[in-house]
Amino acid sequence: MSELEQMEEKPTQRAVFEVIRSSEFDPEFAKVVASSGADEIVQCFQCGTCTGSCPMGRVSAIRTRQIIRMAVLGLKKVLATDELWHCTTCGTCYDRCPRDLKVTEAIVVMRMLAVREGHIPPNLARIVGYVYQYGHAVPINEEIRNLRKKLGLSELPPTTHSYPQALESVQKAMKATSIYETVVERGKPDRG
């Protein structure tokens, strides 16, 4: 929540003002964000087209421009914010940015960096777990099996659901990349 919003919500309470110190700027962070697919975000001139375009920004505290700003300055604490996960990746900001920046991709990249730092939203772990377990982010259930039968479709779709070997290859592929350790392991139900 921004300071202003805090003030609005609790008018009697004084907002905590903080000084951002240059010692918090991590120049490496901005570079990592850029090199992981966000490219030239340093060219952002803070016009606000992105925030003004953002459908989520009208209903949540996400401020796209400020996310980019924090990345440019190297304020790594952006990775720990809730708002980072409010973007629907709709791409409106990307399509309108007058500096032609890949705004949405910058956000997705920062999410990935957040995951690497251990900020893993439970839903993300769950979905990755499903893909690992079933090959589907949305696995089938009893009700749908019945409906499929009724409609004359195969009870199971011709996907990993029907081909155990294919599922195995998905699992092996996931094990071969870092996702297994960072997300799948941590996302297992017994680990919470």
Partner: peptide, 12 residues
């Protein structure tokens, strides 16, 4: 007209 008032950090 939609925009962000970047000084307030709020969509307008």
């Amino acid at each position: 007209v939609r925009a962000e008032d970047t000084f307030l950090g709020k969509p307008v």
